[in-house]
Design a protein around this nucleic acid. Structure first.
Lengths: 105, 105
DNA sequence: AAATTATGTAAGTTGACACTTACGTAAGGA
DNA sequence: TCCTTACGTAAGTGTCAACTTACATAATTT
């Protein structure tokens, strides 16, 4: 799960993710609009592929990328759990402290 | 928001976050149980502080750290929006494709 | 078959980052 | 006042990540 978190930590990759989230795009189409070179985008796509956050489909010389909704959903769930577990504890803590305050009134 | 995402990209810092999420702890207490040295933890705490994900309270020679629930909630909301926006589009896309398929039956 | 298109990969550079050890500092206790 | 405790910070190091240019490759077009 660490590979996925590292993958979305980069702003360029988050932007790529959003692009292929909406549409299936070729590597070249993705690269348009970015300041960095096409090879750089290729390398980012590799990182996203390795993390299973996107999938490819070859068609002739072109390669179409799209977001992998299963992996993305799983990643979101992980982040959600991280929060939920921890926030639940924060909540309990807050309640406990409040009780403590009340008992001293 | 990028600073926050980078901050939680590191596993050590995520572990620290969980610790101070549960309890208010001193820098020294946090460092216990980690393989890395105490100064390394101090540096991680600085990153978390700069990202406003934790807060400090000084008491004598000790410094107590705790999770900053507001910032953490805001971060979670950001991540949530990133997903919701995008997943909504994925859903629409899937529905549109289904319609396309249906119309060809 | 040769040229073109779309793309990935190799190699090298730069900068960031996660660490280390050594040192500085402020507060409390002997 | 001196020592100790609990820290942060400085300086240096190795590694990794994001980029560049140059090259390799595979499928289409001419």
């Amino acid at each position: 799960m660490d590979e996925e978190l590292r993958a979305i930590a980069d702003p360029t990759r988050r932007r790529i993710l959003k692009l292929v989230w909406e549409d299936e795009l070729t590597a070249g189409e993705i690269a348009v609009g970015f300041d960095v070179t096409r090879p750089a985008i290729s390398q980012h796509l590799k990182v996203l592929l390795d993390a299973r956050l996107v999938a490819v489909r070859g068609d002739g010389t072109r390669r179409f990328y799209r977001a992998n909704s299963e992996s993305l959903t799983a990643l979101r769930a992980f982040i959600g759990e991280f929060w939920d577990e921890s926030l639940a504890r924060l909540k309990l803590e807050a309640e406990r402290e409040q009780k403590e305050l009340d008992s001293h009134e």
